[in-house]
Design a binder for these strands. Structure first.
Length: 281
DNA sequence: AGCCAGGCGGTCA
DNA sequence: TGACCGCATGGC
């Protein structure tokens, strides 16, 4: 157990905003799994309280505490709506996720809601991962998924995503898809490479690149971002009545600049929070 | 019952 | 290119 004193960081926003799926909140404490480690973490008066064998250095990297948030805010603060999100969710940071886990996670996210995505990932880990601690399982490695028995895989509720996952696992295993090489490519090239896989279109590729491969210029356009753009005049004035998601992505990258990935996540979280509230109150 | 959820791939004009 | 549909699954 040790403490960290990050400068501008909000643990709850960062883990709750929907970018990552394997963290569970219980009161003040979050529990998650990274690799073969179970992590418990909490924040009190700005200070992080960490219960984990992973080093402070790991968390500085994982939570992108090396990002200069203030200059990022400055570069992406283009209008009143994003400004509101920046003020409200100050300290939300993008996370450096494990590329392989991130790839599979977002392939499982198509046409689903977040609880369902979490459920699938937990089932996959339960059936194909290693038990690290009572009730906590590591995320399965490529080889295990590549060789996964279809009858067991069927229990994971992946639906039409099942074959896509197996296929991707096979390609990572065989080296046909080289994740290390992918991380060295420029955004456009790594995106095209990912999109050659069955089950990966622009949105999934952008999420994987943003959260797993540090491509901050990635601007995933999902159903929420599309609706935000359509419903707010500050954004929809840039488009005709109907515009493709692809064009919205190009626009977002241009409009919000080199850290548009951050802007995307702030807008996404702001909308989801407003929906949550309207459901419960 | 029908629509939606961090979509994608195919088809048809 | 744009519009539509089917694809599993579960919640409302």
């Amino acid at each position: 157990m040790y403490r960290l004193k990050p400068k501008i960081f909000d643990l709850n926003y960062t883990l709750d905003c929907g970018q990552v799926f394997r963290w569970e909140r219980d009161g003040d404490w979050w529990t998650g799994v990274f690799g073969d480690y179970v992590v418990r973490i909490s924040q009190d008066d700005g200070k992080l309280i960490v219960d984990s064998k992973l080093s402070p250095k790991f968390f500085v990297n994982y939570f992108r505490l090396d990002d200069d948030l203030l200059s990022i805010y400055k570069s992406m603060n283009k209008d009143l709506l994003i400004n509101k999100a920046i003020m409200k969710y100050r300290g939300l940071r993008l996370i450096r996720q494990d590329p392989w886990e991130c790839l599979i996670s977002y392939m499982l996210a198509t046409a689903s809601n977040i609880p369902m995505i979490q459920k699938r990932i937990n089932l996959l880990s339960y059936f194909f991962g290693q038990e690290i601690e009572e009730g906590y399982f590591s995320f399965p490695d490529p080889q295990t998924l590549a060789n996964a028995d279809l009858s067991v895989l069927g229990k994971c509720k992946l639906g039409f995503r099942t074959e896509r996952i197996k296929d991707t696992a096979r390609k990572v295993c065989s080296g046909e898809l080289d994740l290390d090489a992918l991380s060295r490519l420029e955004y456009r090239y790594s995106r095209d490479r990912l999109m050659r896989l069955r089950g990966i279109g622009e949105k999934v590729a952008d999420c994987v690149l943003l959260f797993g491969f540090e491509e901050m210029e990635s601007f995933p356009v999902d159903t929420h971002i599309r609706q935000i753009i359509q419903q707010h005049h500050i954004y929809n004035k840039f488009f005709k009545n109907y515009s493709s998601l692809s064009k919205m992505g190009d626009w977002g990258r241009e409009y919000f600049g080199p850290y548009c990935g951050y802007a995307q996540q702030y807008l996404f979280y702001q909308r989801r929070q407003s929906i949550r509230k309207s459901v419960y109150f």
